[in-house]
Write a protein that binds this DNA or RNA. Structure first.
Length: 802
RNA sequence: GCCGCUGUGGCGGAAUGGCAGACGCACUCGACUCAAAAUCGAGCGGGAAACCAUGUGGGUUCAAGUCCCACCAGCGGCACCA
């Protein structure tokens, strides 16, 4: 019989669906396993070959865990709000809802065709009002607890489209769509206080099992630094507060810099002699786009404030104050003490403006460059700190400043609050109402979801407001508090909102009265294993951890962390080794692969392609090897002998393979698990195979290639589905071969190999080695000094010439 | 600039400090065929060999792809965070 993958795959997909095989039970007594992959954005271009890499990997884990008796939840849904859909809607005058519906249908067909064991009864969609009701509800809770606030923020503004752009739409400083200049413009935006959770987001990384690179990236993004705020007196007799991580270098502070946005410029305006120059500088700095700011980052600019200076508190010296945009108002206090000898930026600035550079830590060459890595140096030119190590100086100066009451220890974070507003249509409406009398008032809970109104045009207004701002009968409403006339917020939420809590909804997706029942959350959370792309490490992963912690704080969820374990897969690149993209013309369409080779081959190949965590280029010829393996698996089914226990010839390799495949699946080593299965098949071809052996092989192979194995399992008359059968067990004692081949080395260089019984003692091994002709010959001209034997591995003779 | 990752055959890649190149692709030869494809069998880092080979140069060790130090190259992320 021919291996007719198309018919087989269709047959089993239908059977699984009909029998609801992958439905997660609500049997809360069974051990559970919650596997999660990032739900896709259903784009118009359909599934990418990258999607199945992640989905197949956790499908394999899920299928194995089911066979091991777990109650497995492996859900799927749609992160369907977002820009491309909206842009498509604008261009084609179709409602984004319709676009989404079509794209979801296509994605779902494509996913179904891959035989992924998702529980489709729990499918969710972030654009479904029954879903976003709870996204809005969480937002209202954040608002209620003071974690949502409105503030004026610079946004990206395209001068030609006259609209606000998301960061993703700004490419190399210009508008992605029209190529025109993008400038900064102030706009009032809703913000979420993620910074309030910064410390906990770092600390609780200790509670979870994330790949180390993910933890490091999160920590870097949050960017904690410890230092002190120090007060400098000025000639105006007021206090300029700065932040520094290096109070020990205070004697080297030869000038100060404040940010162009610093409020003291106004405060001192009467005293500043060159105020017009300062204001002109400030104007240009404020209006620079982010792109311009970074473009000219190498070249420092600034203006000296004439008329006001500061006093260095340790030596009483009067030092000048500059305004420069290399100091950011949004970090620390917006003012710094500049220590050019030990900071590269200060050094550059000092060189340009010809300011004194005073070395305070010995060891560098400050004629040439700033000496920054000076943690092990010794203090100089620093009065009472001279001769101390940097660490000692830090301690002493801190005590000194504390005593004088001009310094306080301070921790700062790079992490900023989350800009939560989008001036767009296709997102969750922010459920707030503005009343002249009562201010911002939440839409009452029983009025949620606040639905998106039906409108005809999805473009922003000329002022960059959301298209919702044009719907006057939607905007104008009554204040829920006082009943007076009020206006709805017209901004919508960012795409990150719906994806920040979706994993909770899967546990109880149809619940009408709460986002998920207590019992469901108690049982299913936290997610046991979450796999996704590295590109989501800093935003999505951080945002969802933040929301989860907030929900924990208000008693909605039972765990501090949403995900016990997080892994990430590498990208699948085009055949030329570059990222797949339409413009590079190297995109592989998964539909065509499934059509030509079948879903099983596609799955197997994507798992065999290389190290799961690393990027790997697609290869049209390599996939044939995977297909060949399945053909050989199929062909062998005709020559299976009877037998209900393992034969002596195959016993050891079977136990070994069961062990290896099981361990490799848990350790993301799918490629070597498949290699072991290929080796096993080769061994069957060599030694013959019986029914018991072939059945074990099918079980091990099933999570990888579920359709063909299910078919081969059913052919001899098995009524129970393979997917529901028990995962094979192995016996550690039987994983060992009776005889082993060991290497014989002279001074670590291979001279021969010898065979001997497994676990032979050192004497037996070295005697056997010594009796080998090649070893004898090699030893004839030298003397053995020492013999090293590693059991079942090597015998190494350490020798010297006679 | 900073952070992270990666350098192993023609290619994808294997190797708890213990026989480098498992498994697969490509390729070569042979069988089958009128022929080709498919399939099956054999070979496949370099070198005649001694030996030499895991980006480069040092080091630790009886033994290094693996550990340490210093470089070089590529990829990804961040970007004036005091």
């Amino acid at each position: 019989m021919k291996y007719d993958f198309a018919a087989i795959e269709k047959k089993w997909q239908d059977k699984w669906e009909e029998a609801q095989v992958f439905r997660a039970g609500n049997d809360y007594k069974k051990p559970k396993f919650y596997a999660l992959v990032e739900f896709p954005y259903p784009s118009g271009s359909g599934l990418h070959v990258g999607h199945p890499r992640s989905y197949t990997a956790l499908d394999i884990v899920s299928r194995k865990r089911r066979m091991q008796g777990y109650n497995v939840l492996y859900p799927m849904g749609w992160d369907a709000f977002g820009l491309p859909t909206e842009n498509f809607a604008i261009a084609n005058h179709i409602h984004p809802k319709e676009v989404t519906k079509k794209n979801v249908a296509r994605f779902k067909d494509q996913l179904r065709s891959l035989g992924l064991s998702f529980d489709w009864s729990r499918e969710i969609n972030t654009t479904d009002p029954d879903y976003y009701k709870w996204t809005q509800w969480i937002f209202l809770k954040l608002f209620e607890k003071g974690l949502a606030y409105k503030t004026t923020m610079p946004v990206n503004w395209c001068v030609s489209c006259k609209c606000v752009l998301a960061n993703e739409e700004v490419v190399n400083g210009v508008c992605e769509r029209c190529g025109s200049e993008v400038v900064r413009r102030e706009k009032s935006q809703w913000m979420l206080k993620i910074t309030e959770y910064a410390q906990r987001l770092i600390d609780d990384l200790d509670l979870v099992d994330y790949a180390e690179r993910i933890k490091i990236q999160q920590k870097n993004w949050i960017g904690r630094s410890t230092g002190a705020e120090v007060d400098f007196k000025t000639t105006e007799n007021d206090i300029l507060r700065i932040y520094t991580t290096r109070p020990d270098t205070l004697f080297g502070a030869t000038y100060m810099v404040i940010s162009p946005e610093h409020p003291y410029i106004e405060k001192w305006s009467g005293k500043i002699k060159n105020i017009s120059e300062i204001e002109a500088y400030r104007e240009t700095a404020v209006h620079k786009s982010d792109f311009e700011r970074t473009e000219i980052a190498k070249d420092k600019t600034g203006v000296k404030i004439c008329g006001v200076s500061a006093i260095n508190p340790v030596n009483g010296k009067e030092i000048p104050i500059f305004v420069s945009d290399y100091v950011l108002m949004s970090y620390g206090t917006g003012a710094i003490m500049a220590v050019p000898a030990h900071d590269t930026r200060d050094y550059e600035f000092a060189k340009k403006f010809d300011l004194p550079i005073v070395e305070v830590v010995k060891g560098g060459n400050i004629e040439k460059e700033a000496f920054v890595d000076c943690e092990t140096g010794v203090m100089v030119n620093s009065g009472f700190l001279d001769g101390l190590s940097v660490a000692e100086a830090k301690k002493k100066i801190t005590e000194y400043l504390n005593e004088k009451g001009i310094a306080t220890p301070k921790v700062n974070f790079k992490l900023r609050d989350w800009v939560f507003s989008r001036q767009r249509y296709w997102g969750e409406p922010i459920p707030l109402v503005y009343c002249e009398k009562c201010g911002w008032v939440p839409v009452p809970e029983d009025e949620l979801p606040l639905r998106l109104p039906e409108i005809g045009s999805y473009e922003q207004t000329d002022t960059g407001d959301s298209p919702l701002a044009k719907i006057t009968d939607w905007i104008n409403t009554k204040c829920p508090k006082c009943g007076g006339s009020a206006k709805r917020e017209t901004d919508t939420m960012p795409q990150w909102a719906g994806s920040s809590w979706y994993f909770l909804r899967y546990t109880d997706p149809h619940n009408k009265s709460t986002l998920a029942s207590k019992e469901a959350l108690e049982y299913w959370t936290p997610v046991d294993w979450y796999n996704g792309g590295m590109e989501h490490t800093t935003l999505h992963l951080l945002y969802s951890r933040f929301w989860h912690k907030f929900l924990y704080d208000i008693g909605v969820v039972p765990t501090k962390e949403p995900y016990s374990k997080r892994t990430s897969h590498g990208m699948i690149l085009g055949e030329n080794g570059e990222k797949m993209s339409k413009s590079r013309g190297n995109v592989v369409n998964p539909d065509e692969i499934v059509k030509e080779y079948g879903a099983d081959t596609m799955r197997l190949y994507e798992m065999f392609i290389g190290d799961f965590e690393k990027a790997a280029p697609w290869s049209a010829s390599s996939i044939k090897g995977c297909r060949r393996f399945l053909e050989r698996t199929w062909a062998l089914s005709d020559s299976v002998a009877s037998g209900d226990c393992y034969s002596a010839k195959n016993e050891a390799i079977l136990h070994k393979t069961i062990k290896k495949v099981g361990e490799d699946i848990e350790n993301l080593k799918y490629n070597t698990a498949i290699a072991a299965l290929m080796t096993l098949l080769n061994s069957f071809y060599e030694n013959g195979v019986n029914r018991a052996e072939y059945n074990t092989f099918l079980k091990l192979l099933n999570p990888f290639v579920p359709h063909i194995t299910e078919e081969l399992w059913s052919i001899p008359g098995n009524m129970e589905m393979l997917a529901l059968s028990a995962w094979p067990a192995f016996d550690e004692n039987k994983t060992k071969d009776e005889e082993v081949e060991i290497a014989v080395q002279l001074n670590g260089k291979l001279k021969a190999t010898v065979r001997l019984p497994a676990d032979s003692d050192e004497k037996t091994a070295s005697d056997k080695a010594l009796s080998d002709e090649r070893v004898k010959a090699a030893l004839s001209s030298c003397q053995i000094v020492k013999t090293i034997v590693v059991k079942n591995r090597i015998v190494n003779f350490v020798v010297k010439p006679l």
